[in-house]
């Protein structure tokens, strides 16, 4: 790592503090690059793994319209993965790595994907809740990251956030239909909310308390992110608790309350030990989804080989 008193490092920090956007070929400290690779490869691979829980509902969607809409959302998520993996690859290029290394890291468990995408989706309501609340949670994090100091990531997110707006409405539309439906449909939605609630709280990561981890501190100093996990979770609660309640749904946390003066939410902590197990690929559907991803990666290998052979001779 470069000494932090080097001229290059100081000039870099001046750029960061000025609010400059850093570009792929600009000089950057090694740990800035490492933090970005860590964050963006995890985000990118989560988009791709995130298409899998919903994909399970493509063949079983209740109407043709719903089937087409959920297929479009699944395609969007794969597209988000493609953009982000390109951003990660440009950062990894000086280290001689590319997307094949990312896939390898995913299969060996070195590269994690978001906790929410390890969960089961047993009912159609889960497809709705993912769009409404999981994408809703994601847009809160991604909205923050629009101000990320790394230009290519921020530009990718500008595109992604625009599409997330569609995803949320797609999810809201499914949930609204169930909420206005029969008692059985309402029950299905309520049960889905109960299933997803702890995972939604976990989505933002453990609360920091008074102590920021080294990673977190670096990300804030480098303006890779501007808010803590807990700040993001509080934003999510402020936005979604009233909406969830307005549909007559009961959030499975009797201790949930907002301080009328400070506006801070009190909530029952999810099981953070379970969170660590889940992101270490020991969640309910972790192995099944990794298996599917690995199988389709291996079965697609010959296609990539054939495509590579069509490369025109270098000019």
């Amino acid at each position: 790592m470069e000494p932090t008193d080097s001229l290059q490092y100081q000039q870099f920090m001046e750029r960061i503090n000025r609010g400059d956007r850093i570009e792929a070929e600009d000089w950057m400290p090694d740990d800035y690059r490492q933090q970005l690779i860590r964050l963006i490869s995890m985000h990118g691979i989560s988009e791709i793994m995130g298409a899998l829980p919903e994909k399970e509902w493509v063949p079983k969607a209740p109407t043709l319209f719903r089937k087409l809409a959920i297929m479009a959302k699944v395609q969007d998520e794969m597209g988000h993965g493609q953009l982000l993996i390109r951003v990660a690859e440009d950062l990894m290029a000086p280290l001689g790595k590319n997307r094949e290394d990312l896939m390898e890291d995913l299969f060996t468990g070195r590269l994690k994907f978001h906790n929410v995408f390890h969960m089961a989706t047993p009912t159609w309501a889960d497809a709705g809740v993912i769009g409404w609340l999981v994408d809703g949670a994601a847009i809160i994090t991604q909205g923050m990251s629009l101000s990320c100091s790394y230009g290519p990531y921020a530009r990718a997110l500008a595109r992604i956030v625009e599409e997330e707006g569609f995803h949320i409405q797609h999810g809201e539309s499914i949930c609204m239909e169930l909420a206005e439906g029969t008692p059985v449909q309402r029950q299905m939605l309520q049960e889905s909310l109960e299933r997803w609630w702890p995972a939604l709280l976990m989505f933002f990561g453990p609360p920091e308390g008074n102590q920021l981890s080294t990673h977190q501190q670096k990300n804030l100093d480098y303006k890779i992110r501007s808010k803590t996990n807990e700040e993001l979770r509080q934003k999510f609660l402020t936005k979604y608790v009233p909406r969830i309640r307005s549909l007559g749904l009961v959030i499975p946390d009797p201790t949930l309350s907002q301080d009328p003066v400070t506006k801070v939410w009190q909530y029952a902590q999810p099981d953070w030990t379970l969170f660590r197990q889940i992101v270490n690929n020991q969640g309910p559907r972790s192995q099944a989804r990794l298996g599917l991803r690995q199988m389709s990666y291996q079965e697609g290998q010959w296609v990539r080989r054939v495509l590579a052979m069509t490369t025109p001779a270098a000019v």
Binding site: Q75, R86, E89, R99, R159, A308, T310
Partner: peptide, 24 residues
Amino acid sequence: HQFNVLASSPEMALELGYENFCRR
């Protein structure tokens, strides 16, 4: 300028470019 894609040929880049950036 939209973004970039990884492709084995200009034809594949056009297909990916269309799917990624023009489908809406």
